[in-house]
Design a protein around this nucleic acid. Structure first.
Lengths: 239, 239
DNA sequence: TAGGTACTGCACTGTAGAGTGCAAGAGATG
DNA sequence: CATCTCTTGCACTCTACAGTGCAGTACCTA
């Protein structure tokens, strides 16, 4: 199935995330016997297909029939495994959100221990932008914004757990660095936001208006991240 | 009609923009006689209703029947004045875009003549953010992003003429200020982008994820703009 | 092998929305 | 007033899609 899909090269990531999502949801009650492998297979196939299509064509733009077809599964099986289209959508997105949250948690972890703070922040910016500029991540972000009117709680949850998580981790880190005199950030949350928009703003914004534009080349991302980090460091350097 | 509409308080702006849009499109061929006032009335009513609904519910979320109903006009009249739903949409959005472009052109105009550059940039930031944070503007931006996949050219055009226009005006101004030693911006376009994201990023971003959130209070916008401008000035102050 | 369970195919319901056709009425213009 | 044009109301076509029902089949487990 994936072999005949024109986006097969993206399937590795899709699959990983989809699998996590399908694991997250507890299957039908099956108290005595072990789990039926058919269920797992079907759920995973549906999750993978739905992931691909939702990210490519949005919620409205994806029909359950298409999902079933791409998953090589009957439409009825989709409905046997997910209450309805909305549930399928929210389960998948929450699965991704968890992944993003994990990443966000790790991203900033070693900043407080850095000996060379400017270098550490430049490095952080590079890793941050590189992660966020991945096509799947940009599409997920875009998808959630697209559907924020239909799924406001989902959008809020994503925002809280993905970008919000990074902001709060950075806020803590900057507070510490400020206390140590390695950064001049009396309002650490403000600083964290400024860092984020300096480093990511241009790339995220462009992706929203040009959904089909190719990912900028590695080198350009590095430049963007570095310039953003430099501006941040100049603005917040200790007196 | 507008009186029975729950969003009547927004109608002033809507009307102004809609009128501009309906003016922009040349009506049916009517070479000899003067224009029929009925056509103008109908077009304006449709444009106004469509504006309200598209901004509130998006392109997909708005049906032509709804537009006709809100405009107090028959569905047939909608189709007599606009080829189809897509045309209606793009004509309206291009009308707004022209308005936004005008604004963008004027915004930066007097920066190069400023005697106190930091104060002028802080003031610019306040006006800029205040303009961009208006609900109608945020909704328009959101709408265009939402439909960027369906109308990629429209999205590109908007981006070029609205935010892009501001960036290029700022780029010129910063270049000049750099030459005069009043700003340290060897890459003026980079500086213009950094300025934009520092000042607008947070507000624009939040609006995307919380489409129904109320406009932040005036005072908060002022604070945000000022802090963004200060960070920018700190990062780009002359050596 | 037997019994249970999930998957399949397909027809079907119900809804919604874009766009058209037409005959009759209302309004503008000379 | 006479004519021309726009608007109206309404029925209608087509298409798309969410979700259901059911009978038969394939698969899993003991």
């Amino acid at each position: 199935m994936a072999a005949s899909d024109p986006t097969a090269h993206e399937d590795v990531l899709v699959l990983r995330i989809a699998a996590a999502a399908s694991r997250a949801a507890d299957g039908p009650a099956r108290t005595d016997r072990g789990p039926d492998p058919r269920v797992a297979r079907t759920r995973a196939a549906v999750a993978e297909a739905a992931t691909t299509l939702f990210l490519r064509n949005g919620y409205q733009g994806t029909s359950v029939d298409e999902i079933a077809a791409l998953a090589r599964v009957s439409k009825r099986s989709v409905y046997n495994n997910f209450a309805d289209k909305q549930t399928l959508f929210t389960e998948l997105v929450l699965g991704y959100t968890a992944t993003a949250e994990d990443f966000a948690g790790r991203l900033v972890a070693d900043l407080p221990d850095a000996t060379d703070v400017p270098a550490a922040i430049r490095d952080l910016a590079r890793r941050h932008l590189q992660a966020v500029a991945r096509p799947q991540v940009l599409r997920l972000r875009r998808l959630i914004i697209l559907e924020a009117a239909r799924f406001p709680d989902l959008a809020a949850e994503y925002y809280r757990r993905a970008p919000g998580r990074v902001i709060s981790a950075l806020t803590e880190a900057f507070q510490l660095l400020h206390a140590r005199g390695e950064l001049n950030a009396p309002d650490p949350q403000q600083a964290a936001e400024h860092y984020s928009y300096l480093v990511l703003g241009a790339t995220l914004d462009t992706a929203l208006f040009n959904p089909d534009a190719p990912t900028p080349p590695e080198q350009e991302l590095q430049r963007t991240a570095e310039h953003g980090a430099n501006a941040f460091l100049a603005a917040y350097r200790p007196a």
